[in-house]
């Protein structure tokens, strides 16, 4: 029997890694990947809690999260393509036209 908090710690570490990736990487695609990591961390938490409570709800949530993640990845990548065509760069620091 694996204690719940093991899973939760794994999930937390995964989330933190994802967050760090968002800030540390200067490649839009990698940033998006980090976001996916974060989402998966959350999924893990949900399933773990679901199992812990004996519910099926945790899995249902993950189902929806995955769907949304897929949609978001699709749109995000489309945006990246459009941005790339505009600026020929995937560096987020290159897109500063909203700067004051």
């Amino acid at each position: 029997m694996i204690p719940l908090h093991h899973y939760l710690i794994v999930s937390a570490v995964l989330f933190a890694i994802g967050t760090a990736g968002v800030f540390l990487r200067r490649n839009l695609i990698t940033i998006l990947l980090s976001v996916e990591i974060m989402l998966n961390a959350v999924n893990l938490t949900f399933v773990a809690f679901g199992r812990y409570r004996g519910d099926v709800d945790g899995q249902i949530i993950t189902f929806f999260v995955m769907t949304v993640a897929a949609a978001e990845a699709a749109v995000g990548l489309a945006l990246i393509i459009a941005l790339f065509r505009h600026r020929e760069s995937l560096n987020p620091d290159a897109f500063t036209s909203l700067k004051w």
Binding site: V22, F23, P92, D93, F95, T96, L98, K99, W100
Partner: peptide
């Protein structure tokens, strides 16, 4: 205050975080 508008998404994400 307008220096907050860095135009860099990462900065915004950073403040969120």
């Amino acid at each position: 205050l307008r220096r907050l508008q860095t135009g860099s998404v990462r900065t915004y994400a950073g403040s969120l975080f």
